[in-house]
Design a protein around this nucleic acid. Structure first.
Length: 387
DNA sequence: TCTGGGGTCCTAGGACCC
DNA sequence: TCTGGGGTCCTAGGACCC
């Protein structure tokens, strides 16, 4: 047995499904394997078009974005978040499939169930990602976690037919980086001592929490890599990015992240929003807008009820034709999941927003969620307010 | 021919209370 | 007439993530 400097290190894994949505579609349509496939756009209404024929990306007209692309499509420069029109220019022969979130959620439950069989302490990070506590598994730290990672990978392949990549590290931020080192189907094990060799050369943008804005600002300041960041004076980072963010940037550049896994969470807010096929005007398109608004409120109320929540801060979100967004919100004295109450309150919010420009998006949001059972009946609270 | 939909968290300012 | 802090709640906007 060689010396094990990492014996006291935590062993946290980050698991990321490989091209998740696209891979689920390939299970359904194996004949598309190896071809450039792009998932995105609106769902084709039933009965429209030939169900036996795949739509070509080049024939797409509309405002959608790429949700995922197969590795074959990525080779053309297509990536998620890109407008479908732009993707069509890069790879016109790609097949376009509408997203089927119900199916993706089904596979999400399947692969997570397979993980929990082997490692019970898991943090959910969305439909295709989790953190896993390897310390909570007997023998989980063997070979730094490689043995368990391989077993998990094999179990997911066996139960779903899907591939994933896993990074194992002393903490979440490093594990998240490591899971990307060897995609697809990779396992990467790193220790704190690998920081300089494997982490410092990476661009700051790779850090989970450094987005386009922060990365551009860092670049402008001459800070390109995580190693550059580690050389910065913490005081200077705080001056540039504020106390919280500045300190955090310093910590993560030195591979430090003490956060524990969060194995249970309750939702804070829920929302429904939609981008119109064409921009709508508050006055000229009033009937259409009003119908969409009501249906968004109905959907939101249904979502709340289905999940057993009620909320008290109701708000609207508007995006104008120039892509600027505003929000307006109002907090009620009681919690509600009632479509009519939501519609009325959201309507008051809408009246406070500028409505001269045409709208490309309208959304309704509810926050301050509590379990519906804990929510007081609005009638009782309202009558109390009378006194 | 731009740029989806669902979220979380942070900040900053103002109201209001002690 | 002027002058304190501290704490909490609310709103609006923005960065970021999947």
């Amino acid at each position: 047995m060689s010396e094990v400097p990492a014996a006291r290190e935590r062993r946290i894994a980050h698991l990321d499904m490989d091209a998740f949505y696209a891979s689920v579609e390939l299970l359904r349509y194996p004949q598309l394997k190896g071809q450039p496939v792009v998932i995105g756009g609106r769902r084709r209404p039933a009965g429209e078009g030939n169900a036996l024929e795949f739509a070509r990306l080049e024939s797409y007209q509309g405002r959608g974005v790429v949700t995922t692309a197969t590795y074959a499509a990525r080779e053309f420069g297509v990536h998620s978040g890109m407008g479908l029109m732009q993707a069509a220019r890069l790879c016109s022969e790609a097949i376009l499939l509408p997203a089927d979130f119900e199916e993706y959620r089904r596979y999400s439950r399947l692969f997570k169930a397979a993980i929990v069989q082997l490692a019970p302490r898991v943090e959910d990070r969305g439909i295709d990602e989790v953190y896993i506590d390897f310390d909570a598994v007997p023998g989980g730290v063997e070979l730094g976690g490689r043995t368990l990672a391989l077993r998990i990978q094999q179990a997911i392949q066996a139960t779903t037919g899907l591939g994933c990549s896993i990074g194992v590290a002393p903490n979440k931020v490093l594990a998240k980086l490591a899971s990307e080192f060897d995609k697809p189907n990779g396992i990467t094990v790193i220790y704190a001592t690998d920081l300089a060799a494997r982490v410092w050369p990476l661009p700051c943008r790779k850090l989970n929490g450094v987005g386009p804005k922060a990365s551009a600002r860092l670049e402008q300041l001459g800070v390109r890599t995580i190693g550059d960041l580690a050389r910065c004076e913490p005081r200077w980072l705080v001056e540039q990015f504020g106390r919280h963010h500045g300190q955090w940037l310093h910590e993560v550049s030195w591979g430090r992240d003490e956060r524990d896994l969060s194995t249970h969470s309750e939702p804070v807010s829920m929302s429904c929003e939609t981008t119109f096929e064409r921009d709508l005007h508050a006055v000229r398109d009033r009937p259409e807008l009003s119908a969409v608004f009501t249906s968004l409120c109905d959907q939101l109320a249904a979502d709340l009820t289905r999940h057993g929540y009620a909320g008290r801060t109701i708000g609207v979100k508007l995006r104008y034709d120039n892509f600027q967004s505003v929000t307006r919100a109002q907090t009620l004295a009681f919690h509600t999941a009632d479509a009519a109450v939501i519609r009325r309150t959201a309507g008051l919010c809408l009246k406070r927003a500028p409505l001269k420009r045409r709208l490309r998006l309208l959304g309704v949001r509810i926050g301050g969620l509590v379990n519906a059972a804990a929510a007081q009946a609005p009638a009782a609270v309202q009558s109390l307010e009378l006194f």
